[in-house]
């Protein structure tokens, strides 16, 4: 089954709006793409379009939070993080305001719109902020749980939401706790830690690797910050090698977070699968993933590399 994370997100906002009157939704003229239009239709009095003004939407969101609201602030991730970064730094993170920043059209989502519209740096940009929580749900089912968890979590948070339908790899009754990783496949030879759409590719890689006699553990690291160090360490102690995978540049993302931790906690052979240090290209979602090396085959190669080094 495939679900577009943005659709699940829009539906989750409506459910949340019914449960919690303090939730307000702000959008920067992309409600039809972010699917916040569903919330707008259900709760027009709690939906605010700020226009194409990604700096001001963050400031306005911070103002709402100061006044006790729970604002979900939406725009395309590249513009929201690019134009709003400094507002997120001061008005949200330094001021410790309860603003939920939702970056849409992440990674290769915007496809043929090309490199200007392909955010591959947003995890790095948000992870650097003190006190920021950074989440990338693995599928449409998890998006809904993440929205609810975000509303209950007090403090600044950033969540990535993709546009393109991606495989569902979790079940309705699977647990979702911010900061607690989920092991989707147990193994003993290597640990693959992934987030977002790359988790399903990691599962495919693991299935292929098992035919080669390699037994890979696959971890869904839906929360990139705070990182679930305990789960990582427990797995690495068993496998002794790690590969990370993310729809993001290899600089500053999930792989960096894991490497920062393991470099001091338990250095083991490691490879980071992600976009190399470059901008994206025009193409379909799958074509861009191919060009950037965000593939099952790249994960398999990386696993073979680290196992040789063990």
């Amino acid at each position: 089954m495939m679900i577009a994370p943005r659709l699940a997100y829009g539906q989750a906002l409506v459910e949340l709006g019914q449960e919690n009157e303090d939730v307000v939704v702000l959008d920067a003229d992309v409600a039809k793409a972010s699917m916040t239009i569903l919330f707008k239709e259900a709760f027009p009095e709690r939906f605010f379009d700020l226009g194409i003004a990604e700096s001001d939407i963050i400031g306005t969101g911070a103002g709402f939070a100061v006044a006790g609201k729970i604002p979900f602030v939406n725009a395309y991730a590249n513009f929201l993080l690019g134009n709003g970064w400094e507002q997120i730094r001061i008005s949200v993170c330094y001021a410790k305001q309860n603003v939920k920043i939702i970056g849409h059209n992440i990674g290769a989502s915007s496809g043929k719109d090309g490199p200007t519209h392909l955010p591959l740096e947003d995890i790095a940009l948000t992870r650097a902020f003190p006190g920021m929580t950074v989440i990338e749900p693995v599928d449409g089912i998890e998006v809904k749980k993440a929205v609810k968890a975000l509303a209950e979590h007090v403090g600044p948070a950033y969540m990535r939401v993709g546009r393109i339908p991606i495989p569902v790899v979790t079940k309705e009754d699977d647990e979702f706790v911010i900061g607690k990783a989920n092991i989707l496949r147990e193994g003993k030879d290597v640990t693959i830690i992934a987030c977002g759409v790359m988790v399903s590719k990691a599962l495919s890689a693991a299935a292929a690797l098992s035919r080669e006699g390699l037994n890979a553990e696959v971890i869904n690291m839906h929360t990139i910050k705070p990182l679930d160090k305990e789960s990582i360490l427990k797995s690495i102690e068993k496998t002794g090698a790690v590969v990370t995978a993310e729809e993001h540049t290899v600089i500053g993302g999930l792989g960096s977070a894991v490497a920062e931790y393991l470099a001091t906690a338990m250095p083991v052979p490691m490879r980071i699968v992600g976009s190399p240090d470059r901008f994206g290209v025009c193409g379909t979602y799958d074509e861009i993933h191919e060009v950037l090396g965000l593939t099952v085959e790249k994960i398999r190669e990386a696993v073979r590399d680290v196992i040789i080094l063990k």
């Binding site: 307000v24 009095e45 709690r46 605010f48 700096s55 001001d56 963050i58 400031g59 306005t60 969101g61 911070a62 103002g63 709402f64 939070a65 100061v66 006044a67 006790g68 609201k69 604002p71 400094e86 507002q87 730094r89 001061i90 008005s91 330094y94 001021a95 410790k96």
Partner: peptide
Amino acid sequence: MLKVPGVDMSTGSLGQGFSAAAGMALAGKI
């Protein structure tokens, strides 16, 4: 705002306080 009683918004990066003030006013309206 987290340290000083009476400070309603942390500021220091120009322009941001004004944007947040508008957000507070909008919240007050609804």
